[in-house]
């Protein structure tokens, strides 16, 4: 089963990280990703730009284009990993390896998967 691990945290807090802290966190995540890749289990990984760059298109009689992210949530969606996991327990373990001191990871199994053309 493929699982999507969605990373959430307060964007204002990410903004307040020092460069050292940011580097330490990314190094930790990279190490987990590296291991998953070595096991042949890692799919696409993406880090999103800040929500300030986001736009939302909402269904309406005429589709409504709004500035800003989809939802006014406390924590913002910052990025995602796609991982091949044997079980939910396995996926939760990956998320546990990735999670930092603050923020949250949402673990959601994929219903269908189209690998795309392998964008570079």
């Amino acid at each position: 089963m493929f699982y999507c691990i969605l990373c959430y945290n307060l964007e204002s807090e990410i903004d307040a990280w020092t460069r050292e802290k940011e580097a330490a966190i990314m190094a930790k995540c990279d190490a987990v990703a590296h291991e998953l890749a070595a096991q042949g289990r890692l799919g696409p990984v993406g880090r999103l730009m800040p929500t300030t760059t986001a736009m939302t298109v909402r269904a309406s009689r005429e589709p409504l284009v709004l500035d800003g992210p989809f939802a006014e949530t406390k924590e913002q969606l910052l990025g995602f990993y796609l991982v091949d996991c044997k079980s939910l327990v396995d996926a939760l373990q990956v998320a546990r390896n990735l999670v930092g001191d603050t923020g949250a990871l949402e673990v959601r199994p994929l219903a269908t998967f189209y690998p795309g053309i392998g964008l570079q």
Binding site: L10, S12, E13, D15, A16, K21, A24, D101
Partner: peptide
């Protein structure tokens, strides 16, 4: 990094609001 290194950024982030 100390155990509570995350508190600094968390306080800084919450401060303006």
């Amino acid at each position: 990094m100390t155990e509570v290194a995350w508190i600094g950024p968390a306080l800084a982030a919450a401060r303006p609001q």
